[in-house]
């Protein structure tokens, strides 16, 4: 098992390197270098920055040097000092202000995964065991709607309904009094009061997909001969179901975290823009709109790396569940 974890972790390294390269390419894509836009931006704000500032920045980030050197310098800064570069709109190091938003994104995504699982698992089992029952048709239909309605549209509709019939505008993750307050127990409670709606909206699409997967897998497993073996032993039906087919259908289910996570992170970004949540979504959008490239690159890199780590964790969980993978 330990060996398997080690091997998976080592395999992750090339993936991480490629991810960082992709993020860096995105930073480099817009025309002009960072120093020029930085100085231009300062000038636009009425700050008469000299060519000197530009020169210092160029040196710091190696902007005069070839792209490979610049990439290595950027990576070195990240790995040794956690320095992701400077956000020129805020004129602060990127790492000084993004983490809270990253954690909130993570909380949103993980919350959705939990909800997704808590709903999809029992419903999937029910749909498979009671195949072609009214309940099965109901959930299948609901599932199709869930897949076809993207989260941000659902959010728009719900916000309209809320505004029209409850007369309130929602949005944000905190009440106004906690907006800038430091973290405290009360602030966490306040967060929980606000976060459930986006969490559920985000979970809808994934739940629909997972119900489909769980149902299909379990239907496959239910037809396998080992189920009959288990019945022939004299086990009660529910024990047969839970110990064997459900347990085996769990494996492909767990392996879906691998893609649910990127899907949820993607969804959370656009949902956050619509619902005005203080996560990485609106910040990334803003950064891309004003071409604040170090900020955008850092956000893309961090989100991708977190997703990759999540995928690794789901792989390890899968190996723990399925001896066939563990022993290869």
């Amino acid at each position: 098992m330990l060996q398997y974890i080690l091997r998976r972790a080592l395999l992750m390294i090339p993936t991480l390197i490629v991810t960082s390269l992709v993020a860096y390419i995105i930073i480099e894509l817009p025309p002009g270098d960072f120093a020029t836009s930085y100085v231009a931006n300062l000038a636009a704000q009425g700050d008469m920055a000299s060519q000197e500032t530009a020169r210092v920045i160029r040196e710091q980030y190696g902007l005069d040097q070839p792209a490979t050197v610049r990439y290595l310098k950027w990576m070195q800064g990240i790995l040794t000092q956690g320095n992701f570069g400077i956000a020129f709109e805020l004129r602060q190091p990127v790492s000084s202000f993004i983490w809270e938003r990253v954690w909130l994104t993570l909380a949103l995504s993980l919350g959705s995964i939990l909800i997704t699982w808590a709903l999809a698992f029992p419903i999937g089992i029910y749909s498979a065991v009671k195949q072609y029952s009214i309940g099965d048709y109901f959930f299948t239909f609901l599932g199709f709607i869930g897949i076809a309605v993207p989260g941000f549209l659902l959010a728009l509709v719900l916000m309209y309904v809320q505004f029209k019939y409850l007369g309130q505008t929602s949005g944000g993750l905190f009440s106004s009094e906690f907006l800038t307050a430091p973290w405290s127990w009360d602030k966490v409670l306040d967060l929980l009061q606000h976060i459930w709606l986006p969490v559920i909206i985000l979970a809808v699409g994934g739940t629909a997909e997972l119900i489909r997967i769980m149902r299909a897998n379990l239907l496959d497993e239910l037809r396998k001969p080992y189920v009959i073996t288990a019945r022939a032993k004299g086990l009660p039906e529910w024990r047969v179901l839970l110990k064997y087919p459900v347990r085996l259908a769990l494996n492909p289910f767990v392996s879906t975290i691998g893609w649910t996570l990127p899907f949820l992170v993607s969804g959370s970004i656009i949902l956050s823009v619509v619902m005005n949540l203080p996560t990485t979504g609106p910040m990334l959008l803003r950064a891309l709109q004003v071409q604040d490239m170090y900020l955008a690159g850092a956000l893309i890199l961090i989100l991708s790396v977190l997703t990759i780590i999540g995928t690794l964790l789901s792989d390890i969980l899968l190996a723990w569940l399925d001896p066939r993978i563990r022993y290869q």
């Binding site: 993936t15 991810t19 992709v22 993020a23 995105i26 894509l29 817009p30 691998g258 893609w259 996570l261 990127p262 899907f263 992170v265 993607s266 969804g267 970004i269 656009i270 990334l284 959008l285 891309l288 709109q289 071409q291 955008a296 690159g297 956000l299 893309i300 989100l303 991708s304 997703t307 990759i308 995928t311």
Partner: peptide
């Protein structure tokens, strides 16, 4: 498949 697509698409199309 392991990296979130929307941020990547956003970065590229921006």
């Amino acid at each position: 498949r392991s990296i979130p697509s929307i941020p990547l698409w956003m970065g590229l199309s921006a």
